[in-house]
Amino acid sequence: MSSPKNITELQIGENAVIGEFSNCHVACKLMAMGLLPGSSISLMRKAPFGGAYYIKAKNHYVALRSNEALSVLLSPVL
């Protein structure tokens, strides 16, 4: 089985559900910001000059740098 997808592998407009975090620091911060395992998100945009990802979850919006986006692992959408 291939390793789970992360945010950087999403296409723009693609929906996904957060499965787990591979970095505890990122996990702590994002969970405090309301992004939990099980939250559904979609990738809105990638930054014009690269390096950052703009995601939407429910009614809030978060920008992540590539490093942080890499550590958000997604569970397959059913």
Partner: peptide, 9 residues
């Protein structure tokens, strides 16, 4: 250094 920034409505 990190970027986990809320983009307010």
């Amino acid at each position: 250094s990190f970027l986990m920034l809320e983009l307010p409505e």
